[in-house]
Amino acid sequence: MLPTANLPTDLDASCTKILSEAVKFIDTIVKAGSFDMVAFNRFAATVYPSIRVNMTFAATAQITGIEALMKRWRTLIGEEAWSNLYVTVLSIWTTAELNQASIIIRRTMNQAKVNTHLIDLPTVETPSDPIAVALDNLARIVQDNVAAEMVFNTDLKVADALKGKEDLLSDEILQQIGGTAATANTAAFTTATAAATCPITGHTASV
């Protein structure tokens, strides 16, 4: 199939190397009737340089494709609408940090607003209706922004918490447990704290 794919020379060579080494490796373990990680590691090391070549071509294709699409949409909706554009990027949680789509899209947006208008939405699995999920989350985010300006207009710090990823009660909870954002995950939990009396019900928790 490779000869009919019309790939660039370097990419054709790397794909050929990966496939030929894979076939050789599979033939060897089938004939031997056994498999071990030492042999697999040798195979992986052999094809790694070729995988890196494929990664280079894949990244170039991603950049070219996404930027061309964004440019087409920018022309379609006009500069004014584009400057206020919100973009939501859905990604599986394991690839949410430095997501490839976000990195590329960020360059094409209004740089003065990209930090608030590019929304990364990590998910645990690919949603069945990604557009509906994106629109629902975007609606919630915009609604929170509007509510923050209306309700907390005298306390911008609280307003910013409602606008962003922070839980509205996070600062209050951290103050009460004597922690900070940096120590939120490691704040000490002891029997003494567990036995505190609830100010609402008057009941004392027991552990």
Rank of each mutant, 00 (worst) to 15 (best):
S170D: 07
N145S: 12
L90M: 10
K157V: 14
A161S: 15
V142F: 00
S128P: 00
Q175P: 00
S83A: 14
I141K: 10
L174A: 07
S91A: 15
V124I: 04
K165L: 05
V89L: 01
T108I: 06
T108R: 06
Q175D: 12
N137H: 15
L156D: 11
T108V: 06
T95H: 11
N110S: 13
Q100C: 04
M109Y: 05
E172T: 14
V142C: 03
Q111I: 02
V133M: 11
E149F: 04
E149T: 13
V158N: 02
T126E: 11
S170K: 12
N145Y: 07
V146H: 13
L162F: 07
I103F: 02
F152M: 06
E97I: 12
R107V: 05
K163Y: 05
I92M: 08
S102H: 02
V146T: 14
V89Q: 04
A139S: 14
P127A: 05
L98Y: 10
L118W: 02
V89F: 01
I103S: 04
D155W: 04
K165E: 09
A132K: 11
T95I: 13
L169G: 01
A148I: 07
K165N: 13
K165T: 10
L85R: 10
N84C: 13
T94I: 07
D171V: 01
N99C: 11
A139Y: 09
E166F: 09
E97R: 12
L90R: 03
L121T: 03
A112W: 05
A161T: 02
W93D: 15
A132M: 09
M109A: 08
I141V: 14
P127F: 04
D160M: 08
D120W: 00
